[in-house]
Each structure stands twice: as C-alpha cells, then as structure tokens.
Amino acid sequence: MEIFGIPSALLGSQLLIGLINGSFYAILSLGLAIIFGLLNIINFSHGAMYMLGAFVAWIGLTYFEVGYWTSLLLAPVLVGLLGVVLERTMLKQLYKLDHLYGLLLTFGLALIIEGIFRDQFGVSGEGYAVPDALTGLIPLGFMNLPLYRGWVVIAALTVCFGTWYMIEKTKLGAYLRAGTENPQIVQALGINVPMLITFTYGFGVALAAFAGVLAAPVFQVNPLMGSNLIIVVFAVVVIGGMGSIMGSIVTGLGLGLIEGITKVIYPEASSIVVFAIMILVLLVRPAGLFGKS
C-alpha cells in the first residue's frame, strides 16, 4: 500500500521515529519555555545542561556503578542543584536588565562547561549501554521498534504532561504564574518569590538533564551533543511561542513528525525544515503558534 507514492510501511516507521525525536524536542523546549515564561531568561546553557545530564549518568555508571534507573532521578537532581547555584550567584543579578544579558551570560556558561568536558573527555564521546530491562525489539509489522525508544516516548510524554499539569492546574503552579505576573503583590501576600524563581530555574534545567539521561543510550555521550541539538530546540520554542508551556510540547512533537516525513521525501532537507517552518510562522504569526502577542 502506498500513501502519496511512499510505501506505507516506510512512512509509518519514519513517523514513529519522528515522534521519538519529537519527544526529545518537547522535553527540552518545555524546559526552555518554563524558564523564559517565568524568569524572562533566554537560557542558552540548556544544551550544556542536557549534555551534563548524559555525562552524570555515564560517570555514575563508569566510576560509581550507579545504574540507569538511579541516574534517571539522580542526574536531574544534581544538575538542577547546579542550576540553583548558577541562578543564585549569577542570573539573579540580571533580571532587571534586557533579555540580551541573560542570553550572553548563559551562552558563556555553556561554552565554559562544554570546554571543560571537551578538555577532559575529548570529542569522540563515550558509549552508554541500553539498560538490560529495555533491550530488545518490538515487532510492529511495519518495523521493529527498539524497546528503549518506546520507553523514551512514554517517559518524555509523562514528564511533559506532568509538568504542564503542575504549572497550569496546581496551587504551586498558580503561585509561579502569579509571581511572574506581578512579583510585588505576590510577595506582599507572604510568598517567597525569589525562592520560587530559583526553584523554577532548577526545575527547568533538571528537565534538560532528564532528557540527557534518556538520550545517553541512544546517542554517543559527547561534550558537543547539546550544542548540536540546542539550535533546533530554540527554533521549536520560537515556533510554539516563547513561554507557552503547552505550545512547546505540542510543537516539539509536531516538528519531530514533520522532520520524519521530510526524511522520507527529501532527506537532504531534514535539517533545515524546522527553520523553514520557523520563518513561515514568524511571518504569519510573529508571537508563535501558541503565543499571546
């Protein structure tokens, strides 16, 4: 059977792979969107945090026999704590200034962190084996799906929608949103706003680290893995609308799918299709698909 002249088995498998890559986009762009939406910081060190997550998992396994499942919790916590320290010591100073200062600071941090890891570990990268419980293939008829990739989709979607629920539907989320809307009044009501903001930044980068651990068994753990991905993720955030939580999740998944289809039709264009869409969206809806202008 063929759809638009493409064998349906091929299309099906590419769409599924698009969904898997989309899950990575979604979880990374979600972290960026939260940080931008609540802190007004364009966090260029997000890719470095993703890389750190993967490296914490690798270092844990190689030197301390910390397994995958523990790392999946531990790495986000450790990287999140690093985020807290960075926010308390550096980013805090920049909230009253233009966005550009936050962008430059986080970009500089990313370069330093990546430089240190490149110096220590080289650029060839380190291998991280798929955990035993998740090895194997699921025969789907049109393709054999590695069990681990299936897990990536489930884990990423669970975390994404959990985060969305927390911010949009819980009391803590309401405080967060209120705190960014009008910090003085919320502070006057007895809520510790600076603490909320620190927590948010820590949580945002913890999401990146979580994605890093998820990615470790799929890609080589490499000091440059974040900078390869981060530009695409920024494009996803811009398309979804800066700061829109649901927008970033839906756009991440959607663009993964579109990229998947492009790989069937014209693979050479698959690395630029996201940017082509970004330009289109910016022309038609400058605030992004889900953004409020």
Binding site: L10, V218, M225, E268, S270
Partner: peptide, 18 residues
Amino acid sequence: NHPFPGTDFSSFLLKAQQ
C-alpha cells in the same frame, strides 16, 4: 544523503534495512 553533522540516524538506517 544525511545532513552533516547528524545525530539521529534511525530513519536512514531503516532505509538501509528495507
């Protein structure tokens, strides 16, 4: 032909498999 540099090769590998 895959974009350079690439990270996810699974689409291309599936074509090779097919």
